[in-house]
Amino acid sequence: KELRLGMSAPEATPWGAAAKAMAAKVAELSGGELTISLYFNNELGDGQTMARQIARGRLDMGVLSNVEASLVLPEYGLLNAPYLFTSEKQADCVIDNHVGATFDAAFRKAGAVYLAPIEVGDMMIMAKSPFRLPSDIAREKIRTSPAPTDTYYVQATGAEAVPLSVPETMPALKTGAVVAITTPIIMGVAGGYWAEAPDFIMTDHSHQIGALLLSRTTWDRLDESQRNALTEGAKAMSGLRQGVRAAEKALLAKATAGGAHVIELTPEEKAAWMAVAPAAQAKIVASIGGDAGEVWAKLQAASAACAN
């Protein structure tokens, strides 16, 4: 049986490598009975389209970003809320021990099987000039991804959020329509935005968690051993954690060598960025609606349990 897996990332990225490892593992575990065909670079349509097609059963599987997976289950977007996690260790602990329990059933109900969380990496702000505090960018225009989490956080900092799609981002930086952008580290550096925005403010305001989703329609057609092969094989995606962090380091080093500046914040400066998060979090929970309040309480409890 052949399953189609679509993703936005190119083949030569940590996500491409992890997907290939998973496909190999699934083939091995199922004794060749289940093969996964990989389609990179949005070959099967953009992430939003893939997300909807998984829920509807046209596409079998997808490696989706948090924003895309949130189209299947809006509450999943809460994982992106600013400073839900204050350290990488805390994030890892929540993802390893609590995320499945929080979202498995809800994804099932929404038509998808949640096979694995997908590490996308930390967020930073890339700017045309160096700054360290939210007050430095008051009323400046900052590009956000067109999603509630990112946009409401930037608004809470006192800056002017300008939600822009990826193709519109570079022209906006070039013309000065925005003076900075929020972005996951890898996408920001690899996208070449640092030619226009060479100052990287390492706010780490959110730890991006995507999802490996399988269509429930597909799941229902598989037998027990095939399902086991998939759930076991999906564990190969946990290798992404190392892969993504190594890629972040390598890309930041490459950009620094090319003239970009990485601005690490002091604990006091970081505290100023965190101080504005609660207002944004409340607004995000309200805007998502549905079970968002309940899920948010669970995530905060998980986050607290992982604090040490």
């Binding site: 670079n41 990826v166 570079m170």
Partner: peptide, 15 residues
């Protein structure tokens, strides 16, 4: 822009 994103080349250089 799309080429730059797909191949990790600098979009400014491409422009």
């Amino acid at each position: 822009i799309v080429y730059g994103l797909a191949t990790e080349q600098s979009i400014s250089d491409l422009f």
